[in-house]
Design a protein around this nucleic acid. Structure first.
Lengths: 229, 229, 229, 229
DNA sequence: ATTTAAGCGAGACGGTACGTCTGGTCTTTAT
DNA sequence: ATAAAGACCAGACGTACCGTCTCGCTTAAAT
């Protein structure tokens, strides 16, 4: 992707044989996308992708080790220009917009694939790792930029680890997405970001430090009940 | 479906034929648990459960509609007395202990099933719903008790919806659990709860309300960049 | 294999589970036969057999390790009452009739499978061995009876090994069948048997014994030409 | 392949592009031979030949329509000067030596290809025809020479068709080769030729002619039993 | 004591997808 | 023009697992 590439391509002779068919690849990814937007990853078969792509299964398996990775590539490729990375001048604003945008995306046919990948990853650690590297980390890096701006502007408390901030903001939404409890409306997104920024502690309440001293062996500690959970 | 059913149920006459084997059921659940603690739900086959349980597959499918629900029952049954529902007198304390405890559980062989169920639910909405009802809601109800105590004691801001509070506290951990990015140590749990309570906003920073007024059509709003995510 | 078997076989306790479906097996063999009478073994696929039999491929592979053995069973099963084992009182007659009958059979759709098996055996020695045991030897044993009768009646020279006799009679026909040179009419069958019985030596010609003495180092011996074969 | 080629090559400026590589062809045939002497035709893949020959698959398919014909050419080319066409002055002697020689060849790694071709031919009639023309007929023509000498010398009964004679001599051996029943030692070869020449009829036994008259509708004819073969 | 309605073990079955393999063709660049 | 490289298509292969079905045996309540 670099301009220095043309220097290389001067004597960078193309490989000898027939070239990997760009159309085939595009066709496969497109077909995969089409199917994956309608059915779950598990329900989409390699044969169906091949059939729809007008391509032989061999070609698919030549370039991807399995269905999941085709889906990942399709997802990654299909995702251009869809999620905003706002820079409004306000961290709360940024994260609110971002969360709304991301949530909307994850609720879309394409975005729902995110959950499919998480699901697939639960029985395929290697895939999960790849998913993190190829998607999640890129996303988080982008979001971390917003966080850094907030920190630098003095909006966000720098004591809190950025990883925690990110998970605090996106975790709840993703949890709802995956478990299906709780709504994912724009209001919820706003309320979540607001809560993350403002905290849930009632203002004026005494701090934890004092409480901690009272803890060990305190009567209260003994009142721990055991639930079936 | 007989009208005499109510009469029967009076003195609870036992059904006619051979009774459902209690040992079989226990054996199935035990076997399922054993296997599920070692392999993913997908990798554990119904045949393997039957074999290990010394039971026929028919018996399994007689009482459960599919493998996942066997696993769910095994999970639910295997989970007695494992997770604390503390009542220390401090909401932060309670939630911190709870989060640590829950995290430890979810990292355990049995607890890891939680992720398997979420995963399974992604291609089986009915199962997901059942999972929510039979596990998640119970859990959340219990946690909501802690929240209510905090609210009543004046520790937690009552303006924030309890659902959001719960997701704020558990969502990040569950996200890490599922995606495998980020650690799940006790320190992380503490820091997360602390961040949720305290918020991430730097104290003294001006509130969102003021900013909002400046937003619509503001120059900053136009600076939204689009990332590939 | 237990000595008590005869006792058991009295009331012959049936095996526990669902019984192997006789219809399925029959259906598979019938379908295989149908297809194999129309296409070569290689061209008949397991899927096609399954489809035509209205049976799942699994069921086929449950009972037969591969397509070839299904075909063999189909062949063996389809072959009842088709080939004569005559006993006319004359060995020449018997063998002539037999050869005609066998040839006719081998030229029939079903009989052509014989060649398919020989072919398959060339790249699968185990299959070839099985084919010999399950088909060829049975056939030869039957034919050997005819030979023995001929010997006992004084029609056939007992000095010649029965194996050679059988191969002399059937080998040429099978060779023609496989290689496709040479006709396989009834006249040919008659002529072959006649030649085998009568020999091809011109009556009155001096025997080999005398010639042998003249051989070593004889001028003739040096005239061996080398052909590309 | 013609001597007239040198005339052409005088002024006939060579064709425009890259010339057909003689080495490539030789290399392909050599590689094919190497592999075919070790595995069956079916097990030797076109890719393997190409790889071993250091040649592309295209080149193979450019010059040969399919794998089998490569094998046939490899076979034909690898077979120089291997099988004797003796002329000892005695037909029995000639055929005995020939049969021994041919049998030894067919048992050799190269010779075993013969069976492979016959096998291949069972599902590819065109190939079988080609095989007959390019190999079998040449062989038989050569053998027929021996037969003719025998006839002319008065050793072989001229009433018996030469085709039958040849099949009588070679058929049994080829049958044994293909089916794998029966040994192929030199003694067997001797015995077979001896039997073919001498016939298997016990000397002094009454001829078939008399019997034939007794046949039609005779009691014996009704004694034909039907065996499963 | 006999009937009868289940439960149960064994295991065959249909269905569906998997990922692999091979034969033979096609496309591109190099000679 | 021919070669080498190697991508491509078609379609069979044999395997795996799911959830269902069919038996025959066993158990226990009802008669």
């Amino acid at each position: 992707m670099q301009p220095s590439l043309d220097v290389l391509s001067m004597h960078e002779s193309k490989p000898r044989g027939r070239h990997r068919s760009v159309e085939a690849e595009a066709s496969i990814l497109k077909a995969a996308l089409y199917l994956l937007e309608r059915k779950s990853l598990r329900q989409v078969t390699a044969d169906a992708i091949a059939r729809r792509a007008g391509v032989s299964k061999t070609t698919i398996y030549k370039w991807w080790p399995n269905k999941s990775l085709v889906a990942l590539d399709a997802y990654l490729g299909g995702m251009t220009e869809r999620v905003a990375m706002p820079d409004t001048g306000s961290a709360v604003m940024d994260f609110t917009m971002q969360l709304k945008s991301v949530t909307a995306f994850y609720k879309s046919p394409l975005g729902r694939l995110f959950c499919q990948f998480i699901a697939e990853g639960q029985s395929d650690p290697k895939f999960l790792a790849l998913f993190r590297e190829r998607f999640l980390y890129a996303r988080r890096d982008a979001a971390r930029v917003m966080w850094r701006r907030g920190v630098e502007r003095g909006e966000i408390c720098r004591e809190v680890d950025s990883e925690i901030v990110l998970d605090l903001i996106y975790g709840p939404m993703i949890f709802r997405l995956l478990a299906g409890h709780g709504s994912l409306s724009e209001q919820e997104s706003e309320a979540m970001v607001e809560a993350v920024f403002g905290g849930i502690r009632r203002s004026g309440y005494r701090c934890l430090g004092e409480l901690k001293k009272r803890m060990p062996g305190s009567p209260a500690a003994r009142k721990i009940s055991r639930s079936p959970v």
